[in-house]
């Protein structure tokens, strides 16, 4: 969506145009949901937070500074909603959310060669990668996780991430670098039933499901 087009939608939504509001929701809901889901690992929480963020944003259009992108503002609201939720309900914190991923199960019990035979076509690679990455993300610190998600998934520049998280750019980079390294290490160790296999001769990692017999022996 062009910036001018978005600005027009924002102006119309601010005036109560429901079609414009709907267009903004359709445009940004997936991004906000993904962002929050990556932070918390729970779809239900991501949906709740996204809904609340939109409601707050559309109700508070008068506070929107049009010199910024609507999406940036929306993400800021969503982040605030999420952090407030974490404070109120510790059960929704990232640590608890990790439980559903069975993180760490079976680590180190299999080697790359053990699972190479289970490699699947690209579409399954996507699913494996997605699941494994989410599990591995939940093992990072909150700051590492958020910088990774905003930079790699949302394509935000470091400067914007620094503003969004209220951190110096150098600190953001540090979180980003350490987060990447940790992410890789966790993936290679195996997250849940998925392991990443590195081979210097290929474009890797390749994600593979740990064979059931090995998973059962964990």
């Amino acid at each position: 969506m062009l910036r001018e087009e978005e600005a027009m939608l924002v102006r119309r939504a601010a005036r109560g145009d429901s079609a414009a509001a709907e267009a903004l929701i359709r445009r940004h809901q997936a991004g906000v949901q993904s962002y929050i889901y990556r932070l918390c690992g729970r779809f239900d929480v991501a949906q709740d937070v996204t809904q609340e963020a939109f409601v707050r944003a559309l109700a508070g259009m008068r506070n929107f500074d049009p010199t910024f992108r609507f999406s940036t503002w929306l993400f800021t609201i969503a982040r605030r909603v999420w952090l407030n939720l974490c404070e109120k309900k510790k059960a929704c914190s990232a640590g608890d959310a990790c439980d559903s991923w069975e993180v760490g199960a079976g680590r180190g019990t299999s080697t790359s060669s053990d699972v190479l035979a289970t490699l699947r076509p690209d579409d399954e690679q996507r699913d494996l990668a997605r699941d494994a990455l989410q599990g591995a993300l939940m093992l990072l610190s909150e700051e590492q996780r958020e910088t990774i998600v905003l930079f790699h998934q949302m394509d935000w520049p470091i400067r914007l991430i620094a503003e969004h998280m209220d951190l110096p750019e150098g600190t953001v980079k540090s979180h980003l670098h350490r987060g990447r390294q940790r992410l890789r290490e966790e993936l290679v160790r195996g997250v849940g039933e998925v392991v990443a296999i590195e081979d210097s001769g290929r474009t890797l990692p390749t994600f593979a499901r740990i064979p059931a017999r090995q998973g059962a022996s964990r």
């Binding site: 429901s18 809901q29 997936a30 949901q33 949906q47 996204t50 990455l133 990774i148 998600v149």
Partner: peptide, 16 residues
């Protein structure tokens, strides 16, 4: 791989 978005449902109606 991180650019592969999670499968999120469309919640437009819910938000509206």
């Amino acid at each position: 791989a991180l650019k592969i978005p999670p499968r999120t449902p469309d919640i437009t109606e819910r938000v509206l």
